[in-house]
Computed example of a mutant assay.
Amino acid sequence: MTQQTSTQNPALAALSAEGVSVWLDDLSRDLIRSGKLADLVATRSVVGVTTNPSIFQAALSKGHAYDEQIRELAAGGHDVDASILAVTTDDVRAACDVLAPVFEATGGLDGRVSIEVDPRLAHKTDATVQQALELWRIVDRPNLFIKIPATVAGLPAIARVVAEGVSVNVTLIFSVERYERVIESYLDGLTAAKAAGHDLSTIRSVASFFVSRVDTEIDARLEEIGTDQALNLRGKAGLANARLAYAAYRRAFEGGTRFEQLAAAGALPQRPLWASTGVKNPAYPDTLYVTELVAPNTVNTMPEKTLEAVADHGEVTGDTITARIGAAQQVFDALASVGVNLQDVFRKLEDEGVEKFVVSWKDLLAATKEQLAAHAPNAEG
């Protein structure tokens, strides 16, 4: 939680007071240089920032904020990959500096900025570890999170990176089953970090559990089934899935034997982070994945549109998760009973999630290559 002042928006301040850390799912050089990011910290209870390949692709494709740096990189003979690395890490480092006071005020809980490993490495463990450690070294800020996808290859990478004392944001989690494996990877990493002599109190982690995409995929399948029973389940899966994830978090970190042993050495819980919280179906309230996912020790990262919707008309009514975990299981039982293949849903969502980021990364590569060529016409691509 952040310390509130009279300038903070009441709805977002109320969300923060319930134990939900408000993070912004966006970053650009304009956002930093204009002072808008600092303003969101001051007026919207924002205490963290998440990025992904799609966000960087959008930022570099708009306006001229990056022209000068691209010109310098072209003159220096930097290739496309090196140029993207320089541009993205510079933005993240600058955002870390904006949020440094929050980091200090919260004892390292918040004030965090996330940067993701190249999505083309999502199924390559060793390469993911190598780049994660490289990003940690280049950005060189204690309030950084390295984002690693929760793919099968990502799970051992998470453990190995945490073992090096690096703070990790695990992304692209869609199922509770995979989330439980993510928790085990985090605990494996902490165990190794302890053995290596690292100060466990300096290692932080969040687990980014995607919400709206679950409803989008499952709603489509329910409409294809078409029965009244199926149609009545639309818009319920995403929240139910997240609530069951919160139950898994509590099992592991509130009384879990393995974590308690590590906590005695200074280890801290891996908080659930609700991601993909922008509502994609206009029939649903635009604050649905915020006001209905309120519980202590959680994070909600929101695109600015969702953040402003909550600020304008969000109604925070206290904890909307803990007492509804039993009902969430009933939703999943009902989904299975009408014929929704949940394993197939989660497998498809993970595959599509990785592919979407790869496509955005390739678009970013192509756009940057064009800009480098324009500033250095005689340089090789």
Results as ranks from 00 to 15, higher is better:
E224L: 12
T128S: 12
D67Y: 04
I218G: 00
G326A: 15
H123S: 09
H64Y: 09
F253M: 04
P149M: 09
V211M: 08
A207M: 08
I203Y: 02
L187Y: 00
T216E: 14
L288C: 08
V354W: 05
F210L: 04
E223H: 00
E184F: 04
F145G: 13
V182T: 13
L233H: 06
L144S: 14
A100N: 06
V117Q: 13
A195F: 01
V41K: 08
G154K: 10
A122Y: 05
G35W: 01
A334R: 14
V22G: 10
A252E: 13
W274N: 08
A11V: 05
E116Q: 00
S185N: 04
A311V: 00
T50E: 00
V340K: 08
A328M: 03
D110W: 03
L31N: 13
T317I: 05
V49K: 09
V338E: 13
L273K: 10
V129A: 02
F357S: 12
D286A: 02
V345L: 00
N300Q: 01
G326P: 06
V299A: 12
Q330M: 10
V211K: 14
L349F: 02
L187N: 11
F56Q: 04
Q330P: 08
G339A: 05
V354N: 10
K36W: 01
V22P: 08
A207Y: 11
T50Y: 05
G235K: 11
A58Y: 08
E292F: 04
E350Q: 03
A105C: 11
L190I: 03
A245D: 11
S201F: 00
N341A: 04
E68N: 14
T306A: 02
A13Q: 13
K147N: 01
S34E: 06
R243L: 04
D25C: 12
G266T: 01
A157Y: 10
I325K: 14
A374L: 08
W23I: 01
D110K: 09
R324W: 10
F357Y: 07
A309G: 14
G235Y: 10
N241W: 07
N52Q: 01
K62P: 06
A252W: 06
K356A: 09
A366G: 10
A367M: 05
V162G: 04
L365I: 11
P377T: 02
G154T: 07
V80L: 05
A327E: 15
Y289K: 03
D30S: 14
L31E: 10
A334C: 04
A327F: 03
P119H: 07
P296A: 00
N232K: 15
L60T: 12
R213A: 13
T227L: 08
I55N: 12
L85I: 08
T322F: 00
L307R: 10
T106Q: 02
D67E: 11
P296I: 05
L244T: 11
V87H: 09
H313K: 13
I32G: 09
A59N: 12
A311G: 09
K124D: 14
G35C: 09
L40V: 00
D25G: 13
I225T: 08
A82Q: 07
S208M: 06
G255Q: 06
T291E: 06
R324Y: 04
L244F: 12
H375M: 02
E217A: 11
H375T: 01
T202C: 01
G108Q: 12
V206I: 01
L12A: 00
T151F: 00
E177N: 10
D215G: 05
L262E: 15
